[in-house]
């Protein structure tokens, strides 16, 4: 069975090498400082955690912040872990690119840029990958083409009893 490393274990390992790099440690992930990302990732890859295989790189729009989630696997130790970086900059979020650490992130970062509008510094060829160059806007952002005052996403099934999340109005019966 693949052992899922808890965020705390990963954070603990990182702190030995880079004390102030870890921001927060949850059971599923360890939140890392954005500007320390390259050092942390190189350590995770070459250190004894041996995360040589980058599973996936996902950009998440948390309304007040943008997050990048990295899932990594160590093939030799059959272990899996994930780290996150976050920025509250809404207009032009910028993160360091990990293509120097894992070349596999090349296309995934271009996809994050194309759909979420996140710029990755140091990426060899940051262009839109699915949409054409002149496309205006970033489709996967929550506020993309929204009707005023309405946020994307189904919060409650019409006519469904139960609690209603604040700030998330939708077509109410």
């Amino acid at each position: 069975m693949t052992r899922l490393l808890a965020g705390q274990d990963i954070a603990h390992q990182i702190e030995q090498k880079y004390p102030e790099a870890v921001v927060d440690a949850q059971p599923e992930f360890a939140m890392v400082k954005a500007d320390k990302l390259i050092d942390v990732c190189t350590f995770l890859r070459d250190g004894d955690l041996d995360f040589k295989f980058l599973n996936s790189l996902t950009a998440v729009d948390r309304l007040d912040a943008f997050e990048i989630v990295y899932h990594m696997t160590s093939i030799s130790l059959n272990q899996m872990g994930s780290i996150k970086i976050s920025t509250s900059e809404r207009e032009k979020p910028v993160f360091p690119s990990v293509t120097s650490v894992w070349p596999g992130a090349h296309l995934q970062e271009r996809e994050a840029y194309d759909l979420m509008g996140i710029v990755f510094e140091g990426h060899p060829d940051l262009r839109r990958i699915f949409l054409w160059e002149g496309f205006a806007g970033w489709p996967l952002r929550k506020d993309y083409l929204n009707m005023p005052g309405h946020m994307a996403g189904l919060e409650r099934f019409p006519g469904e009893p139960g609690k209603k999340l604040e700030g998330r109005g939708n077509v109410d019966a």
Partner: peptide, 16 residues
């Protein structure tokens, strides 16, 4: 792989 973020709603908050 499917990476799903849920915010307690009935639809996935992020579906990657």
């Amino acid at each position: 792989g499917f990476y799903i973020v849920s915010d307690g709603g009935i639809a996935p908050y992020r579906f990657h």
